[in-house]
């Protein structure tokens, strides 16, 4: 039989406080996003959209002849989580090999879905996104930029020395 006291006394699973989600490092990336903008030339573009919230990202990447990311920018509209994630991702990506970044994007998505433990793995400020794992509805916000990165790198691989041809 239904018993109000039994049910209401128990708070249910309480994830980390939202204060932990919107910590200062994350908000700083949101307020002052790194690499926000577009690239004039030599870019590979990738778009991602989340129809649930209307968030959009356009990622522009230019690879150097050695396969590292020479330049990377993002544009679009997004919430604090998706904007900060794009900022953190692009700051890390510059100068890194495409293959390594593609693996990292896969690992990041798996970490966000809590399939593997969270570890910063040398990515500066990535820890600011750890709290997102407790908010399943926001995981897509965090992974959107990384999906765009995967997509852009795959495209770049199709035309190795990316640049206007």
């Amino acid at each position: 039989m239904y018993s109000p006291s039994r049910w209401s006394a128990r708070g249910g699973p309480s994830p980390v406080d939202a204060n932990d989600l919107y910590q200062e490092v994350l908000l700083d990336h949101f307020r002052h996003p790194r690499n926000h903008g577009t690239l004039a030339d030599g870019e590979v573009l990738a778009d991602e959209e989340n129809p649930n919230c209307g968030d959009r990202i356009r990622l522009a990447v230019r690879l150097a002849p050695d396969g590292t990311v020479a330049d990377i920018r993002f544009d679009g509209r997004g919430c604090a989580i998706s904007t900060a994630s794009a900022s953190i991702m692009t700051a890390h990506a510059r100068g890194r090999p495409a293959g390594e970044l593609s693996d990292l994007a896969d690992r990041f998505s798996a970490m966000m879905r809590a399939e593997i433990p969270f570890e910063e793995g040398g990515v500066e400020d990535l820890a600011a996104l750890a709290g997102v794992r407790s908010f399943p509805l926001r995981v897509k916000c965090a992974t959107m930029a990384w999906h765009a990165l995967k997509k852009a790198l795959a495209r770049a691989a199709e035309k190795p020395f990316s640049g206007r041809s």
């Binding site: 939202a18 919107y22 919430c79 989580i81 908010f135 926001r138």
Partner: peptide
């Protein structure tokens, strides 16, 4: 302010 951020902040 993005609506998702607003709802999340109100939730706290």
């Amino acid at each position: 302010a993005h609506p998702h951020d607003v709802a999340q902040l109100l939730d706290r």
